[in-house]
Computed example of a mutant assay.
Amino acid sequence: MPYSLVFNFVPETLIPPDYATGRHLNALFITAVNAVDPELATHLHEQKTTKAFTSSPLQKLPPSRRDVPPQIPDILKAQYQRPIPAQTPCWWRVSLLDEQVFGRLSQLWLNLNPRQPWHLGAANLHITSILGTPQSTQPWANACSYQELYETASDSNRRLNFQLATPVAFRQQKYDTALPTPESVFRSLHNSWKRYSGIELPGFATDNIFPCYFDIRTDILDFEFRKKGKSSKFIGAVGRIDFRILGDVEPATIKALNTLSQYALYCGIGRKTTMGMGMALARSPRRS
């Protein structure tokens, strides 16, 4: 059963911009896991591909107006140029793709003490709540069994729409590409589904999927992996992209593709999903 958990927190001290990136929040999550299950922390850290969790960059909660709740933007902030001041309400998303991982971390959730700060670099964070069910104002919190994802997926909907909230990129042989083609998007989702769901998707194929609308741009992330004095920069796509299933396609294939579209919330798309890249949501059809 995949989980998408949103941690709401308030920093006690300012957060330097470098520490708001997915790379440092990845380290924060591994450190928190290590406190309750060192063996699991080592396992998660050493996974090379299709990892069992994802982590978002840090997000500042949008200010709310009177009688209007804060709205989460479609494109999230992947990195910051200025420090985040103390006492700024923030949130951070972690998704877990393996049911056993969630169970092994039960002590982490049960023993969460709002008075005991978490440490992000030199900054102290106070967790105020963890959201794990759908929220009208927080689209990134949810939980759903793999079986339910498959059983509730449509076998007739031919329009598959995605909001790419953080940069999405794919590995092609030795190099990366930021172009979200149907093959790269749905193969990425399918690879994760095969690894963790235990449910076969009969009829899965990408031959009849074609882009029908896109409003995307590229964004550059600098993870500052220091190798020979150089930092590692990644180019990814953000924005809206819609696909349409065309031609004579079996209902089983349509159901498989709709299943994977809904699964994107949990597993993300493409590379570096444990470091804030590839966050994606299935969206309802655009209004004409």
Rank of each mutant, 00 (worst) to 15 (best):
R23P: 02
T31H: 15
R226M: 13
S192W: 10
R271K: 11
G270A: 03
A153K: 07
R187T: 11
Q59R: 02
L120A: 13
T49D: 08
G121H: 15
R159V: 02
R93E: 13
S95C: 14
K48R: 15
A165V: 01
T259D: 01
L28S: 04
A143F: 04
D222Q: 09
R65M: 10
T50I: 05
P83I: 14
P38M: 00
S106W: 14
P251R: 09
R286F: 01
F9D: 04
G276T: 03
L164Y: 05
R271V: 03
A280N: 05
E99I: 07
L281Q: 07
Q59N: 01
W140S: 00
T177G: 02
P85L: 13
R82G: 05
R65F: 11
C267G: 04
P117Y: 11
W92G: 05
T253C: 14
R66M: 12
R240M: 02
F9Q: 10
D219L: 12
S231W: 02
A143E: 08
P167D: 00
Q147N: 07
A122G: 10
N142R: 04
R82V: 12
P17M: 09
V101W: 08
F210E: 13
L97D: 10
K51C: 10
A237H: 00
A78L: 08
G276Q: 07
A280L: 01
Q100F: 14
N208S: 15
E39I: 06
F7W: 12
Y263G: 07
T253V: 04
I72E: 03
P70F: 09
F170K: 03
P285K: 00
Q262Y: 06
G239S: 00
P38T: 00
Y196V: 12
I220K: 09
I84S: 12
G278K: 00
R66L: 15
P167V: 00
A153M: 09
N142I: 05
R187W: 06
D215H: 11
T21P: 05
A20G: 13
Y266Q: 05
R115P: 07
R65V: 10
Q135L: 06
R217P: 01
L257Y: 03
V185E: 02
D219P: 01
L125N: 12
Y175H: 11
R217W: 07
D37V: 03
R195L: 10
E46N: 15
E12W: 13
A252S: 11
K233N: 01
Q147M: 05
R187F: 11
E200R: 14
P117I: 14
R287Y: 03
A41R: 02
L76W: 12
N34V: 10
A282W: 04
K233H: 04
